[in-house]
């Protein structure tokens, strides 16, 4: 277990079948604590399916998705937890989760994996501030005594709500939307909606942030801002980020680690520079690699 010393998320033999279609085939990779990992691949490679499996929206056909809170030593209990049939095992120095056994909302609430969506899913008819308060639902729900104390107007809830608003204000300041806090989220420009969705995910206090194409539809200036935001999230909060992205300027600049999928199979895994020069990756993106051109031409008979 030496190499897994600061692994946060461990995906092992993940397979997802939809009827006869194998969307993800025996995929294994790891995301380390405080790293930004990118999941890239051509369209239809199965990236979003992997996300949906990790965040509990799909139940994987096969595979194990382990996530740890606390000390790396809790990984030692992984096999015991798997055999026990439980969803999680709480240790004195941390907790181990098996995400494939948890429904979506518990992945977010207990395992603290937050996500954003490829097609933005804000609450458009609620204000920007309300969007960030909904994200802090579970803490506020507890503070309001599961609604009972809140209806009676107990001060503990008022305090909790004030601190939740402070936290939201903090994030709005960070993403530059403080002036628009009281506007409906559906009125924001596209780039601001993307940033708001990330801020909303961060308001759930995640340990792992899964971003599905956060730079899609952003102009170069906005992409650069996004890079800064993601690096700040990684460095200030020590949160791991797993992102799906097509914008290579984002992927190559900020990620510590890149996993490349093609037709549901992992074809490369490593540092950005290594992946960029990988023959298989070039072949997947551009058709075939440079040095193969002659041999292919010979095969075809040119």
């Amino acid at each position: 277990m030496a190499e897994a010393i600061d692994t946060l998320l461990r995906v092992e033999h993940l397979t997802m079948r939809f009827g006869g279609l194998v969307a993800v085939d025996d995929l294994s990779f790891e995301v380390r604590q405080g790293h930004i990992a990118a999941l890239i691949g051509p369209n239809g490679a199965g990236k979003t399916t992997v996300f949906n499996c990790i965040t509990g929206f799909y139940k994987p056909s096969e595979g194990r998705l382990g996530l740890r809170h606390g000390k790396p030593a809790v990984w030692d209990a992984l096999d015991a937890l798997t055999d026990s049939g439980a969803r999680r095992r709480i240790h004195p120095n941390g907790t181990l989760f098996l995400l494939e056994r948890m429904p979506d909302y518990l992945v977010a609430r207990q395992a603290r994996v937050a996500r954003t969506f490829q097609n933005i899913r804000l609450f458009p008819g609620m204000t920007v501030l309300e969007n960030l308060l909904v994200a802090q639902h579970n803490r506020l729900m507890f503070a309001s005594g599961y609604t009972l104390l809140g209806v009676l107007g107990f001060p503990s809830y008022t305090r909790a709500e004030r601190s939740a608003i402070d936290k939201a204000r903090d994030w709005l300041n960070r993403i530059g939307l403080l002036a628009r806090a009281d506007d409906p989220a559906g009125d924001l420009p596209y780039g601001a909606q993307r940033r708001l969705e990330i801020a909303r995910a961060m308001c759930t206090d995640p340990v792992l942030l899964c971003l599905d194409e956060p730079a899609a539809g952003l102009n170069p200036h906005e992409s650069a801002e996004l890079n800064e935001l993601l690096l700040a999230i990684r460095d200030e909060f020590a949160i791991s980020v797993l992102l799906i992205e097509h914008d290579m300027t984002v992927v190559m600049e900020i990620s510590d680690h890149v996993v490349v999928l093609d037709y549901g199979v992992k074809i490369a895994d490593g540092a950005p520079d290594a992946v960029r020069n990988d023959d298989k990756v070039i072949a997947a993106y551009l058709g075939i690699a440079g040095e193969d051109v002659q041999s292919v031409e010979a095969e075809v008979g040119l």
Partner: peptide, 10 residues
């Protein structure tokens, strides 16, 4: 507004 987003927020 959006049930899936709700679930993603726990």
């Amino acid at each position: 507004e959006d049930e899936i987003a709700c679930r993603s927020l726990g």
